[in-house]
Structure formats: C-alpha cells, structure tokens
C-alpha cells in the first residue's frame, strides 16, 4: 500500500505539530552556534503551510510536496527556506505524477531531496549541517526492503544518529562556521530539524 496525497498531507500536518513543539529547542540550538532563528523560522514556515493546506487540496503527492516547497521558500526567511524548499521541490519532481508513493518512490524522493540540498548549500558530510542527517537517512532508506513506514522509520533512525554525529564537528558551512572551533560540542540545529521531520513522517506513515 502506498501513500496518497491525503497521506502526505497528514504527514505534513504531523510534521508541523512537531516543529511547533520543538520550536524552542531549535532556537536554543541555533542560539548556541548560529543566529538563533531556526526554530522560529521553521515554525513560521510550517504554520504558513498549515493554512495553505486548509484552503488548497493538491491532487497528487508530488503536488503536495511542491506546495510545501513554494511555501517554505517564501516564508521561512533563513537558510532553511531555500534548503528545505529545494529539498521538497526536488522530491516533488522525483515523484512526478504518481498517484501513490511506494517505498521505492519514497526512497528516490529522499535521494532527490539530498541532492537538492547539496546542490543548493554546497555542504558535504562532516560540515555540521543537515547533510549530516540526510545523507545516512537516504542510504538507510535505500537499503530497506519493506513498506513506506519501514523505509521512513529506517531513514529517521539514521537521521537521528547522523544528527548526533554533528555534536563534535567543527562547522564549515553556514553561520556556525564563523565560530570555528567554538562550534564543536553543539548539536547542529539543521541536522536536528531534519531528523525531527523524518521521524514525524515515519510516525505518520506508521499510522496511515
């Protein structure tokens, strides 16, 4: 059984709830090594997304993902806007007009999202960014043979581990890179939010 447009919308509503719950945590993480706006920026973006989902009913999973992209790009205001925006835009293109997403489609959407983030932000693994969470997530998703929920769950677990791996890293991209060595010892807020979003998607898929 695959994910319909309605399932994807449900997953995004769940993700918006998680973003709201973790807003303060993400702000704190970003205050430690960045400009402190990540939690609020994401909350603003996902709040805007919720109101668009209330009024618009995209007819396919790809169209839902595209709506997410354009909303985040135009409302987030920080680096997460273009980065998550590009991720969702590429994911949308990857799934095309499919009516339902099976595990393969989800895995390739994640791969496309990662490629988009890398193309946009020019970060590689080890730079202490969301790429450190998304890269292992993509690999895990590709290695799992099962339902969409299982694929997303493996991706979320790998992303959580990848996010934790950013703690000792010295940032080489984004605002945190200005801190140099002082950025070590802190969890990267972008990696953290990536892992939170994937966990929210996985939990929603498990319920669907």
């Amino acid at each position: 059984m695959g994910c319909t447009a309605a399932d994807v919308v449900a997953a995004l509503r769940a993700a918006a709830e998680v973003v709201k719950e973790h807003r303060d945590e993400l702000v704190r993480l970003d205050q430690a090594i960045g400009d402190g706006d990540h939690g609020e920026n994401l909350r603003r973006g996902f709040t805007a997304l919720l109101s668009r989902l209330d009024t618009e009913e995209p007819s396919s999973p790809g169209k839902v993902l595209k709506l997410v992209a354009t909303t985040l790009i135009s409302t987030v205001g920080g680096a997460a806007g273009p980065l998550y925006g590009t991720a969702f835009l590429r994911a949308s293109a990857a799934v095309g007009d499919l009516e339902e997403l099976d595990s393969d489609a989800v895995a390739s959407a994640l791969r496309a999202a990662l490629d988009g983030v890398v193309a946009r932000g020019k970060a590689v693994v080890g730079d202490k960014t969301m790429v450190d969470a998304l890269t292992p997530a993509v690999a895990a998703a590709a290695s799992v043979d099962g339902e969409v929920a299982a694929v997303l769950s493996a991706a979320a677990d790998a992303a959580a581990e990848g996010a934790e791996s950013t703690v000792p890293m010295v940032a080489r991209k984004g605002r945190a890179s200005y801190l140099g060595e002082r950025s070590a010892g802190h969890l990267d807020p972008g990696a953290r939010s990536t892992s939170l979003l994937l966990r929210a998607f996985a939990d929603a898929a498990a319920k669907a």
Partner: peptide, 11 residues
Amino acid sequence: DLGSAKMTAEM
C-alpha cells in the same frame, strides 16, 4: 551579504 541571502538570490 551572507550564505542564505546567496541561496535565496540563486533560487
């Protein structure tokens, strides 16, 4: 000026 302004401009 800074990184995300560049990304926004590129988009």
